[in-house]
């Protein structure tokens, strides 16, 4: 067992980027700095126990990574890793320094909106896929005999997709609701 590395399983949903950042700061203070993440698994390397601030940024669309990362570096933010559309940055804590990658509420709201928009698109694409599968099943019935394996397979797949879709809708919907609440709080902190 290598004592210089550590892998932790931890789940943070899309509305929990602040909680995730706080946890990564906590891990760093314990002497484990983040190397990379695959969403559910976090890989750490041992390091001096120091106070580092972690921040997550969500970017979709066209992004020139080189100049994007350079801009953060100019401000003293070290780029750590990227997981899908999430960019992880860290900075050593110094007195009187700004601790957030966002300096106004408008840009915080903008990021929440982007996360919502992106995941609504994913949900929509998934439901289109289910619709297409149903359309295919309708056609499939004409070439697969009613009791055949193929027919059963399609039925099973369709039921699975619908169940998956409902579970997905429940989880993602809940997260989207939390993001909207976050936006409302940013718009009106009172």
């Amino acid at each position: 067992m290598d004592r210089n590395t550590l892998t932790e399983r931890q789940v943070f949903y899309i509305a929990e980027f602040n909680e995730e950042a706080a946890w990564l700061s906590f891990m760093h203070a314990e002497g484990w700095k983040l190397v990379k993440t695959t969403g559910f698994k976090y890989h750490f390397e041992s390091c001096p126990q120091e106070e580092w601030i972690y921040q997550l940024d969500f970017r979709d669309g066209n992004l020139d990574e080189t100049s994007y990362i350079q801009m953060y570096a100019d401000y003293g933010w070290e780029f750590v890793t990227r997981f899908r559309h999430w960019y992880y940055f860290r900075k050593i804590r110094t007195a009187g320094d700004d601790m957030s990658i966002f300096s106004d509420n408008e840009s915080k709201i903008e990021m929440c909106r982007k996360v919502i928009g992106h995941h609504v698109m994913i949900l929509a694409a998934y439901y289109l896929f289910i619709l297409a599968l149903f359309a295919f099943m309708m056609c499939g019935n004409s070439f697969a005999a009613p009791d055949s394996f193929l027919n059963g397979f399609f039925e099973g797949a369709a039921v699975g997709c619908i169940l998956g879709g409902l579970i997905g809708l429940f989880f993602v919907g809940n997260q989207l609701h939390r993001l909207r609440r976050k936006i409302r709080q940013l718009q009106n902190p009172l």
Partner: peptide, 9 residues
């Protein structure tokens, strides 16, 4: 003080 995320956006 404008932060990088705000600036980039």
């Amino acid at each position: 003080l404008i932060s990088p995320g705000t600036m980039y956006g």
